[in-house]
Design a protein around this nucleic acid. Structure first.
Length: 813
DNA sequence: AGCACGCCGACT
DNA sequence: GTCGGCGTGCTC
């Protein structure tokens, strides 16, 4: 920024849509540029702001001065601002909040009011008669200053601002403001180097000589490392520094999230199909934006295509972004890339500590990493000149963030590639309907891998009709005789089997045997799930827990029937049927602990597990070479979801989990148990043929003008007051129809569905309603929603009822 | 988001 | 009459 400019444009990290102009004092001017964070006065507060560029004072009488500059270098390249603006506009989300969401956490500085008791307050507590509420508050403050949130969470009393006012006026307490947050900082370490004269002559102790020799090998060394050579290095270095033999200094280091190094591998020879796919992408690389959909059956070597293309991009000196749907798949992808490319990899995912994350971010920012691998948030990596963005398992719904900025990283990958003039490569064995449709419309080019590695055949899938199993008892109710026989044979051959059920816990529908009432969550309108491992009923939506010995709330009976099944029940059944088999379970409950997932994967690899029971976590991309049997306990669970994509998701998860069988040398078999053997999703999954699924599904979407033949924005309305939420939903619905009918264009292009109560009508004590806006084009429904929000802004800025705008919704529960 | 202002019901 | 509840609007 030229120093003739006095004003800058600043976005604040708050839910505010405008940006603001600030004045930069002369001494700070040279330190301020786009991408730098500044501390600014905002109303009566002090908040973090992001410098977007030059500002204009306009007709404002008074422009405030910034208070401080928080960074010594921009946290993201200026070129990313266009991307942030695009995201902000598309998802109708304030730009400052977009940037805050993109940046690694723990950076935002904000001020906080803290209450402190005065000496007169202390005295008053002894001498003056106080109300119980006043006494409790002052007592609490005697233990030390407290923030408003501290008090709110520690006390039963409602925190009334007037009470604080009163005590403040009497001089018993004072309000103090202090800056909080912004704790993530670069890590500094003390380094030592020899003085220019090199190793000095003279009578030095053996320890000193050792240190000199070590230091002579390199330009500088961290004291930490020297201490490993000589335990007393710290004090010796101190005295050597005084003597002028060495000098010490602080140096910025990166916290290292990687484990031990990985043996490097060499790129294998690609098969003809892989070569062809790689060749087509290489032909367009560096020639502007394009998008490819790489479809290949499971085990057809997509990762090898990614690796080849990444190598090509590296040769072009452009950055590569690789997205994986969730952290469980990070380790695998990271390992493959590090083996091939070594240290130029950066990773970004939620498994990193705040410090590690920040350091990886800055490595990317400093162009020290040519390849970035990460979960969905890695789409915001501060890289420049991105030549290739790979989205693995592009169909996966984990790419959609379901809180705050509700973005879809898969979609943003295409946008970011476009803004960078690069290539987006979406890969999947079961591509999304949307991406297939984009191929049909020639927006994406399709690359296909039909052959599995070593021409291994796909697993044979046998469908078992569960309706014929209704009269079975005990474990036979959910493990059919067909599945049992196959399990028995697999285990007797010394091979491994996988049992898939997309539901955690032991019993998902505990019901009172005396009165028939379900065991329900007190905060949500759903039934609790019994987790026998934890001896507790748990709510999967709000985390509410109660002991498994609880009695029925309605009649007090302790006779609770454990209806509904989950992975725990299947695990127990497997152990009962095959007492000699080593059975393990893999779901969110068993993988929360760091490293436990890797332990399970290792157990499979080393064959210390014979039978693995799991949820969709086992369906996703993991390579289990010794598994020859997959049992799908109930294929229908996701089919009944209140969502037009229920069929798509069911097909994808079934085809993916079936793909886990027979990835090694022996052929695989899948037993698919279902109540709907003739449903086209099940039928297509049996054939493992996404094309046939797509052809049927796309007709269904077209007939009902569902996406991709229309675009949706979902309004999610929630609040703690049942009546208020309902009334607001109805009000907003009314305004939707009013606006729709106000113009001919809207009347033709917009369809309003609802308001209706959400399928999950209450979660975590909040009542939920929803309205679905459907438009013939994105611009129609987007423009409509923007006008709705600006025209009736008071309805959207309510405190007691929250309205969330979800663009391109995935979950409509 | 916070914080202040402003408007109505229950108390001295 | 005021105290104190919460709905509304603004922040360069």
């Amino acid at each position: 920024m030229a120093d003739s400019h006095t004003y800058i444009e600043v976005a604040v990290a708050l839910p505010v849509y405008q940006t603001f102009a600030y004045c930069v004092p002369i001494p700070l001017r040279s330190q301020v540029s786009p991408g730098i964070r500044v501390l600014v006065p905002f109303g009566r507060r002090t908040v973090t702001g992001y410098v977007l560029g030059d500002g204009e004072a306009g007709s404002l009488q008074e422009v405030k001065h910034i208070l401080d500059v928080l960074d010594s270098e921009p946290l993201f390249p200026e070129s990313m601002l266009d991307f942030f603006r695009w995201v902000s506009d598309y998802y109708i989300y304030p730009i400052g909040e977009v940037i805050k969401c993109a940046l690694p956490g723990g950076l935002t500085v904000y001020d906080q009011t803290r209450l402190e008791i005065t000496t007169t307050g202390d005295a008053a507590l002894q001498q003056v008669s106080l109300t119980p509420v006043e006494r409790r508050l002052l007592r609490r403050l005697q233990a030390g200053p407290k923030s408003m949130t501290d008090i709110r969470s520690a006390s039963e009393d409602a925190l009334s601002l007037s009470l604080i006012h009163v005590l403040e006026n009497r001089g018993w307490l004072i309000k103090k403001r202090e800056l909080r947050g912004g704790r993530t900082k670069p890590k500094m370490e003390r380094y030592v180097s020899l003085s220019d004269s090199g190793i000095p002559d003279g009578p030095f102790s053996p320890a000193r000589k050792k240190l000199f020799e070590a230091l002579n090998q390199r330009v500088d060394m961290p004291i930490k490392q020297l201490r490993k050579i000589v335990p007393t290095a710290s004090s010796i270095i101190r005295s050597l520094e005084t003597g002028g033999y060495v000098s010490t200094f602080q140096k910025r280091v990166y916290r290292d999230p990687f484990g031990e190094s990985i043996a490097s591998d060499i790129a294998p020879t690609l098969n003809e199909e892989q070569k062809k796919a790689v060749g087509s992408v290489i032909d367009t690389m560096g020639k502007g934006f394009s998008t490819y959909l790489l479809t290949g059956v499971t085990g057809s070597g997509k990762t090898e295509v990614y690796l080849s293309l990444a190598a090509e991009a590296m040769a072009h000196d452009v950055t590569v972004l690789v997205l994986v749907p969730e952290i469980a798949l990070m380790a695998q992808m990271e390992r493959r890339f590090r083996a091939r490319f070594g240290d130029c990899i950066a990773v970004l995912h939620s498994g990193l500590s705040a410090g590690e994350r920040f350091d990886q971010w800055m490595r990317i920012r400093h162009k020290e990493a040519g390849i970035v691998i990460g979960a969905r948030s890695a789409i915001f990596a501060p890289a420049e000149k991105i030549g290739l963005i790979i989205v693995d398992e592009e169909h996966d719904t984990s790419y959609k963030q379901e809180s705050g900025l509700r973005y879809n990283a898969r979609d943003l990958a295409v946008v970011r590639a476009k803004l960078n003039g690069g290539v987006a490569l979406l890969g999947s064995a079961t591509p999304s309907v949307q991406s297939c449709h984009n191929v049909d419309k020639k927006k994406f080019a399709e690359l296909t891998l039909t052959r599995r590695i070593d021409d291994r055949p796909l697993a044979e899938i046998i469908v078992v009709d569960l309706c014929k199993n209704r009269d079975a008892s005990g474990t036979g109710r959910f493990i059919s005789s067909e599945l049992y026989q196959e399990m028995k044979q697999t285990l007797s051959r010394g091979e491994q089997a996988l049992l898939f059920l997309n539901r955690r816990g032991y019993a998902s529908f505990p019901v009172c045997g005396a009165c028939g009432e379900a065991v329900r969550c007190k905060n949500c309108d759903i039934s609790l799930t019994l987790h026998q491992g934890d001896r507790a009923y748990k709510c999967h939506y709000c985390g509410f827990t109660r002991a498994s010995v609880s009695r029925c709330d309605t009649c007090g009976s302790s006779n609770i029937k454990l209806l509904g099944m989950g992975t725990e029940k299947i695990e127990a059944a497997a152990k009962e049927l095959f007492p000699e088999a080593r059975v393990a379970r893999m779901d969110r409950d068993t993988t929360v602990r760091k490293g436990s997932l890797l332990g399970l994967l290792k157990g499979l690899r080393n064959r210390t597990i014979d039978l693995l029971v799991g949820t969709q976590i086992i369906a996703k991309g993991h390579d289990f070479p010794n598994i020859t049997l997959v049992g799908i306990i109930c294929a229908d669970l996701s089919l009944s979801f209140p969502d037009f994509r229920a069929g798509e998701r069911t097909f994808q998860i079934l085809a993916q989990v079936a793909g886990r069988a027979g990835r090694g040398k022996r052929p695989g078999k899948v037993i698919l148990q279902t109540y709907n053997p003739n449903h086209f999703c099940i039928e297509s999954a049996r054939k493992q043929d996404f094309r046939s699924f797509y052809e049927k599904e796309i007709k269904f979407r077209k007939s009902l003008t569902y996406p991709p033949f229309s675009r949706m924005i979902h309004l999610k309305i929630s609040g703690k007051d049942r009546q208020k939420v309902r009334q607001y939903a109805i009000d907003i619905g009314g305004k939707c129809r009013l606006l729709k009918n106000s113009s001919n264009t809207y009347q033709k292009s917009i369809e309003i569905m609802g308001p209706i109560e959400a399928p999950l009508p209450r979660i975590a004590g909040r009542f939920r309603w929803q309205i679905l806006c459907k438009g013939s084009t994105f611009n129609a429904v987007h423009g409509f929603t923007r006008r709705l929000m600006s025209g009736y802004s008071s309805l959207f800025n309510q405190r007691s009822v929250k309205v969330v705008v979800d663009v391109d919704p995935v979950l409509m529960m």
